[in-house]
Amino acid sequence: MDSSVPGSVLPNQLRNSGGDCVCLRETNYFYQNFQLKTILTAQQVSLTCKRLAHQVLENHPGLDNTVIIGLQPRGIFFSNRIVDVLRQLTGQGVTYGQLDITFYRDDVRKSLHIANTTNIPFGIENKKVILVDDVLYTGRTIRAALDALLDFGRPAGVSLCVLIDRRFSRELPIQPDYTGKVIDTIVSQRVKVAWTENEGSDEVILLDN
């Protein structure tokens, strides 16, 4: 019930958006078993991306020594948008890579995950790295990402930018530096971030069963 945290919202306070998430309901039968609530609309996602890009620029003026690294697979959609905004704001190129953490996971023997492409065509030695992912939940993905990242060199610093922070669900002591929206959820709920490239529209949805 911590309403003092800016941007925080409790599930029961979420409005039921009704027809807003039609695209998911129509395209994927899986989602018909859930109650869907919109957390962020397309317009809000766009505004949030712009805000986060500005916040990154506040701390990394000029982005001279800064690199952006999106996490495969679904963090890439978000990091693409952040990088687009950063390019518009700075009017210059942004050093941008994609990292896949499949081989660094701690649950290889429990379930098999299919690897995605890693593309980091630059050194990260002494750079300020901003890791970008869509949802921060248990923190295990970020733990693996830190391990993977350090195999590419010794960065001057690493910070974390996420669109959604599922607060109180952490299993490791990892916190974001740039947060789109903080939400309080329970384990049985799911958060789905839909992107135009994949699902047809930008939207963040809470799934309740």
Partner: peptide, 21 residues
């Protein structure tokens, strides 16, 4: 074959080793 392509990228990194196994 597609997993091998990802491992081939791993083998180009400064640290050519992952903790998977």
């Amino acid at each position: 074959l597609s997993t091998a392509a990802q491992f081939k990228e791993v083998l180009q990194r400064p640290v050519k080793k992952v903790p998977s196994l």
